[in-house]
């Protein structure tokens, strides 16, 4: 079951996790000890902003400059799934 992440939670990438762009497959990937995640474009944008400073709500606001119709709940849901995969931790 996916846990719930609040909009004021502050996500950050865990140690040992690397976010990169796979030139061959032309996709954003997250490399971590247990596996590989292949992100779509918006997920990559969210992960890039998981800096341990911005909250989920602030990430949504930032992405609002680039994307139309950003849903903060989508971001919270993604972060919750990344926490489950032990790619991201949240404070708060």
């Amino acid at each position: 079951m996916t846990s719930v992440v609040a909009l004021d939670a502050v996500p950050h990438i865990r140690r040992g996790v690397k976010c990169t762009y796979d030139q061959i497959r032309e996709s954003h990937v997250v490399l971590f000890p247990e596996g590989v995640l292949v992100l779509n474009e918006t997920a990559a944008s969210v992960v890039a902003l998981c800096d341990g400073v911005r909250s989920v709500g602030e990430i949504a606001l930032s992405l609002g400059d680039v994307y139309a119709g950003v849903e903060p709940e989508d971001i919270a849901g993604l972060v919750a799934r990344l926490v489950e995969r032990r790619v991201v931790d949240v404070d708060g």
């Binding site: 995640l37 918006t42 997920a43 994307y67 139309a68 989508d74």
Partner: peptide, 18 residues
């Protein structure tokens, strides 16, 4: 000065393959 309207990309639900 005329600013072109900003074209924002359409939000797609963020997802990943595992």
């Amino acid at each position: 000065e005329q600013k072109l309207p900003e074209v924002k990309r359409e939000w797609v639900k963020p997802d990943f393959r595992d």
